Computed example of a mutant assay.
Amino acid sequence: MHAPADLAALPAPGNTDPALRAVALFEAAKGVVSLVGAGALAFAGAARLQLWAGMLLARIQGHAPGTGWLQRMISADSVRLVALAIAAYGLLRLVEAWGLWRARAWASWLGCVSAALYLPFEVHALVRHPGWIAATVLAINLVIVAILGRDLLRRR
């Protein structure tokens, strides 16, 4: 009896592509950092963020802290919404990392499409503000798209 074609395309356990594992670890790290950031944002709360925003604007603009536009945008609801969005992003990255570690095709699709979505913005950033940071971010995403694209082509 033959295995279905999609199961036969999966690598044997322990024979996972090291590049795919590296991308999985990178995505897991992004997920963990995002969840920590979301927790820190929620823990800080709107009042503390308003204070910090006022201090930052005062430092940038060179006058005493006051109620600026940035402070007015920060509310308990907006902080919760942003923290929730960051947490959802982090969970998505962790799910993707799990799928990549287990060599699942859906995770390669998810990672390839999500990384490719950033590429036009990263090229724009590099053109507008050339520098090693923009170039490094673009290069990392190009490598990720190449690794995941290669994995998807290999499965065909």
Results as ranks from 00 to 15, higher is better:
residue 70 L to P: 14
residue 58 A to L: 00
residue 93 R to Y: 09
residue 147 I to A: 04
residue 109 W to G: 07
residue 129 H to Q: 14
residue 116 A to I: 06
residue 116 A to L: 12
residue 32 V to A: 14
residue 39 G to W: 08
residue 91 L to P: 04
residue 35 L to W: 05
residue 155 R to L: 15
residue 148 L to V: 10
residue 121 F to I: 01
residue 30 K to E: 06
residue 23 V to Q: 02
residue 83 A to E: 00
residue 95 V to N: 13
residue 79 V to C: 05
residue 63 H to Q: 12
residue 142 L to Y: 03
residue 14 G to I: 08
residue 8 A to D: 11
residue 126 L to G: 06
residue 28 A to C: 08
residue 99 G to C: 00
residue 1 M to I: 12
residue 18 P to R: 11
residue 56 L to V: 11
residue 150 R to E: 13
residue 91 L to E: 05
residue 16 T to P: 05
residue 76 A to Q: 05
residue 33 V to K: 05
residue 148 L to W: 05
residue 156 R to P: 13
residue 44 A to V: 08
residue 129 H to G: 08
residue 146 A to T: 12
residue 88 A to G: 04
residue 51 L to K: 04
residue 139 A to W: 01
residue 86 I to T: 11
residue 44 A to W: 03
residue 122 E to G: 00
residue 37 G to N: 06
residue 112 C to N: 10
residue 27 E to V: 04
residue 50 Q to V: 03
residue 60 I to E: 04
residue 41 L to H: 01
residue 123 V to C: 06
residue 124 H to D: 12
residue 53 A to N: 02
residue 50 Q to R: 13
residue 142 L to V: 07
residue 11 P to C: 11
residue 114 S to W: 06
residue 107 A to D: 14
residue 3 A to Y: 14
residue 95 V to D: 04
residue 74 I to N: 02
residue 136 T to E: 14
residue 153 L to R: 11
residue 27 E to W: 10
residue 129 H to L: 15
residue 118 Y to E: 13
residue 146 A to L: 06
residue 20 L to Q: 05
residue 89 Y to M: 10
residue 17 D to W: 14
residue 13 P to L: 07
residue 45 G to A: 14
residue 68 G to Q: 11
residue 26 F to E: 13
residue 52 W to N: 03
residue 97 A to P: 13
residue 132 W to C: 14
residue 108 S to W: 08
residue 104 R to Y: 09
residue 150 R to A: 08
residue 66 G to I: 07
residue 33 V to R: 13
residue 16 T to Q: 03
residue 96 E to M: 15
residue 51 L to A: 04
residue 53 A to R: 02
residue 148 L to K: 03
residue 49 L to Y: 00
residue 6 D to C: 00
residue 147 I to L: 10
residue 140 I to E: 15
residue 58 A to N: 12
residue 95 V to Q: 10
residue 86 I to K: 10
residue 90 G to Y: 09
residue 139 A to F: 02
residue 118 Y to F: 13
residue 138 L to R: 06
residue 99 G to D: 03
